[in-house]
């Protein structure tokens, strides 16, 4: 018999009922730990897997990560389906239920604020991909046509063409990014809040076109259609006007927009609860908040820790 820990999935109000027979990671039954009008949904996990040392090793195992992630998601979905819910970050394990109770009590107001804010809103994901070749055609011109005089010396001409090709690519990328900014801003008009996740690695998304937007939007119930309309409008506009140039002629859309959801409000409950009660999102202009669009590309090194989102 190994020691066990308490794995926490989500926090909701105590009157929520995620249903019977809910099972979490390793197919262990999930139960509620109630305190101060709140409930944490938890299950028992063995520390020979969920201790720091074994975990570091197991996280290299994609199958293991996938199973835990899906089990976590399954519980969060059930809880969020029953009422306002604050999902907890993947793999949050306490030594005992007393500590969970203590957390609910100490952070009651923070959780209440999050649950009130979330309400019955849903999170929708919007991912936009730009196809450089289609964008090139729509924007007009072949690579390197803007170079002007080309040297008669082959080596120099090659370098000129290469340099022009890079400039073209850079220009197209900037256009695509600018469109993504506008799309994000338009989606934030419909949403209560928007947040950009960093672009997915092409080998994970399975796509080699440019992912220019990986956004999450917290949307009031009943406004999904408006979100969908914005998505459709942008995809269509991208076919009519290739970025900022060459407008007017119709071509294949170079912007592919995917919608996922509804999700539990994962991206908008990024409350960081530590002893100092820090609100790390303050002074972080790259976070979208209250429908205000974010500016600028996602930066390196961000978003490893939970921050932003809720206020």
């Amino acid at each position: 018999m190994t020691d066990s820990g308490v794995y926490m999935y989500a926090v909701a109000r105590d009157d929520s009922d995620a249903g019977p027979d809910l099972r979490g990671v390793l197919d262990v039954p999930v139960h509620k730990v109630s305190r101060a009008g709140l409930a944490a949904y938890v299950s028992e996990v063995p520390l020979d897997q969920f201790g720091e040392e074994p975990l570091t090793r197991l996280l290299e195992d994609l199958d293991w990560v996938g199973e835990v992630a899906r089990a976590h998601h399954r519980v969060v979905e059930a809880v969020a389906g029953a009422g306002p819910a604050a999902p907890v970050r993947l793999v949050t394990v306490y030594g005992g239920e007393d500590q969970v109770c203590d957390l609910l009590e100490r952070r009651h107001d923070d959780f209440e604020e999050v649950l009130t804010r979330v309400g019955d809103r849903k999170e929708w994901g919007v991912k936009a991909y730009a196809d450089p070749a289609a964008l090139q055609r729509t924007a007009g011109g072949e690579p390197g046509t803007e170079t002007g005089a080309v040297s008669e010396r082959p080596g120099t001409a090659y370098l000129q063409r290469r340099s022009a090709g890079l400039r073209d690519r850079d220009r197209l990328r900037k256009q695509a990014v600018a469109w993504a900014e506008r799309l994000h801003a338009a989606l934030c008009e419909v949403a209560v809040a928007g947040r950009r996740h960093r672009p997915q690695d092409p080998s994970l998304s399975g796509r080699d076109d440019w992912m220019v937007l990986n956004g999450a939007y917290l949307v009031d119930g009943g406004r999904e259609r408006e979100l969908a309309a914005v998505v459709a409008a942008f995809a269509k506009m991208s076919a009519l006007a290739g970025g900022d140039v060459g407008g007017g002629k119709e071509a294949a859309p170079w912007l592919d927009v995917e919608v996922t959801g509804p999700w539990a409000p994962y991206s908008f409950t990024s409350l960081e609860l530590d002893r100092d009660h820090v609100r790390p999102e303050q002074g972080r202009p790259e976070r979208g908040e209250h429908g205000r669009p974010e500016r600028g590309e996602p930066r390196r090194g961000e978003e490893r820790r939970g921050d932003g989102g809720v206020r």
């Binding site: 820990g5 399954r74 306490y94 030594g95 959780f111 994901g125 999450a216 990024s270 978003e303």
Partner: peptide
């Protein structure tokens, strides 16, 4: 749950949600 793309799920599970530090056996942080 089984039809959600893992990469989309991990976007959310690793960058969203309530993060608790302190008093824990283990946390993502």
């Amino acid at each position: 749950a089984e039809r959600v793309a893992l990469v989309d799920l991990l976007d959310r599970l690793l960058a969203g949600g309530v993060v608790v530090t302190g008093d824990l056996v283990i946390s993502i942080a």
